[in-house]
């Protein structure tokens, strides 16, 4: 996760409280999604950014997880997301993020 986004997440967690922030990922690659999820829960695994050694334990989800899809307006989903749902490995993306969440998120939706 780039350094600016790491800082944005720290800022949001400080401003609203870690219990009031949910991280919603839209990344296209399961390995990358897992790394992002790790970054906002355990901390930056590359030790390069502001989240190095900072375990926020935020609840983290991928947009293709069923719980999130169920919350979305179906019309907008069809207009903006349905196409990528066919292109990407949604099960792997959801699984990769869920695994990190189950292990390291302190709160869940």
């Amino acid at each position: 996760m780039d350094l600016e986004n790491q800082q944005r997440i720290i800022d949001a967690a400080e401003k609203f409280g870690a219990g009031n922030v949910v991280v919603l990922l839209g990344s296209a690659d399961p390995e990358g999604a897992g790394l992002y999820a790790e970054t906002v829960t355990v901390g930056d695994p590359t030790f390069a950014g502001p989240l190095a050694g900072v375990s926020l334990g935020l609840p983290v989800y991928h947009v293709f997880e069923e719980d999130i899809k169920a919350e979305a307006d179906q019309g907008i989903w069809q207009e903006q997301i349905e196409m990528m749902e066919m292109v990407l490995d949604t099960a792997a993306l959801a699984g990769s993020v869920a695994e990190m969440r189950e292990q390291h998120s302190q709160t869940k939706l």
């Binding site: 207009e79 196409m83 990528m84």
Partner: peptide
């Protein structure tokens, strides 16, 4: 047009 890959395509 929107920023999602679907909107761009």
């Amino acid at each position: 047009a929107g920023a999602s890959p679907q909107a761009v395509t």
